[in-house]
Design a protein around this nucleic acid. Structure first.
Lengths: 164, 164
DNA sequence: AAGATATAGTTTGATATCCAACTATCGGCA
DNA sequence: TGCCGATAGTTGGATATCAAACTATATCTT
């Protein structure tokens, strides 16, 4: 995690290369794909910094929310909802269970599956992360502007749903 | 690469878990951060599929554009422009040079640095990728809508630039 | 009921990425 | 001139991720 260029301090020029500020982006400048990536990287980094105080990796957040909102969810359902492969979830849950944030119970009627639930400790951690997330979202609101926010969100949802 | 949930076929219900369609997203539903991630994952996957025919990894595209637009750029400048750590670039350039798409010359006046340029073969590959990218962008335009596109792009740029 | 097919979760192997430490070189300054 | 802090690029160690193969269990079909 924590991608991105970091401090954005004053960029230097190589005598031979171009000034870093004068880099030409060509079509990347106005293409949605590239700018979506840059925006996503930036928000991810910003949230990482915020949630670092809670001592939780940023990827854990949506996982915890989804378990909280869907008690007894299975790993496969969780991975689908979260947009990650189920195999990515194995080490994450191992860690969350080991640290006592998530409880994993075998299902009696289907002994292949687990049911996931938050422990009290998991709920407490999630509450802290929620505070980070609300600040983060307020910040994003400020940048996007209240007027555009709804449209912006709707566009993101359409992209995720409709792109082939 | 190629993340995301794949085919979005009919989702099953575990008798015990919830219907996959009935998963509750809670605040994730209307939070920009989560939806930005989902949209970015989806566009990334879509572009991967398109560019697979060209036989090029999707991450290579912005790299090639930036070299084409900034002949003689250094690796550090490239990594800054591309929003990735310079160390990530080492294996990428190794590969691009080995396959004859990029030419890497030592700078005489500064023997630590390289200058990067596209070879004719690199330009040809880039031209193919540009065709993929244009189709990809047309698709995104269709989804976002011509009316919102400008605002959407502006919001993405503001996010990348202003988030702390 | 037996065999075939599907599903839940894990394991394995690959890639992309970060950060920190490293090597070589540069540039300034005493 | 000779050292010292900055810079270019690489290396090494870590994490996140995916896809495919695997194990165990479940369900369907005949």
């Amino acid at each position: 995690m924590a991608r991105g260029r970091g401090d954005a301090g004053p960029m230097r020029r190589g005598r031979n290369g171009q000034d870093a500020e004068s880099i030409k982006f060509g079509p990347l400048e106005y293409w949605v794909g590239f700018n979506l990536r840059m925006a996503q990287d930036a928000t991810f980094d910003a949230f990482s910094r915020r949630s670092k105080d809670v001592g939780e990796k940023p990827g854990r957040f949506s996982t915890l929310v989804l378990i909280a909102r869907n008690p007894g969810i299975s790993q496969t359902e969780l991975s689908l909802a979260n947009g990650r492969d189920k195999s990515s979830l194995t080490p994450v849950l191992e860690d969350l269970v080991r640290r006592g944030l998530v409880e994993r119970k075998r299902v009696r009627s289907d002994r292949r599956a687990y049911r996931l639930n938050l422990t009290p400790s998991g709920k407490a951690t999630l509450a802290q992360l929620m505070r980070c997330a609300r600040r983060h979202e307020r910040n994003l609101d400020r940048i996007i502007g209240a007027r555009d926010r709804k449209r912006f969100l709707a566009a993101l949802k359409r992209i995720a749903a409709e792109i082939d």
